[in-house]
């Protein structure tokens, strides 16, 4: 579209407005201010409610999280000198010292390893 055509359209708009008998305008500013204030208050109230809901939900979620409560209770270790290792428990090198783990030689009697044990790394 060229500038000439734009001018024609603008003049046409001006003519439309000139031809239209504009009635006396009532003042809309007061009504707009009142309505705008109401809309703003409503929006603020909604936003405050939303924030409170968010905070409440977050707090609830945080307290309900599994990691938030102390679930990992320390298991009391049995005293090392009391009794012998029970046969139904897997041998643990940390709690029950065995002659195999005590051996300093990798090629010793324990070199085959017990079934289920992983390969040991070289010292």
């Amino acid at each position: 579209m060229n500038g000439e055509e734009a001018d024609v359209v603008r003049i046409a708009f001006e003519q439309i407005l000139d031809a239209a008998e504009e009635p006396a305008a009532r003042d809309v500013v007061d009504a707009a201010v009142a309505g705008g204030r109401r809309a703003r208050r409503r929006r603020l109230a909604l936003s405050a409610t939303g924030t409170m809901l968010f905070v409440a939900l977050t707090a609830t979620a945080v307290t309900a999280l599994p990691g938030a409560q102390p679930q990992h209770r320390p298991v009391p270790l049995s005293p090392p000198s009391v009794g012998r290792p029970s046969p139904d428990r897997a041998p643990s090198s940390a709690s029950v010292p065995t002659p195999v783990s005590a051996s300093p030689h990798p090629g010793g009697p324990s070199s085959g390893g017990s079934p289920g044990q992983g390969p040991r790394s070289a010292p």
């Binding site: 407005l17 239209a20 504009e22 309505g35 705008g36 204030r37 809309a39």
Partner: peptide
């Protein structure tokens, strides 16, 4: 008025516009 072709509607449009404008002033 150029948009809607009616002065009364135009007045209402302006009022709504100013109301929204005030809310975001």
């Amino acid at each position: 008025y150029l948009l809607c072709g009616d002065w009364h509607q135009a007045q209402d449009l302006v009022q709504i516009t100013l109301m929204k404008l005030y809310a975001a002033w």
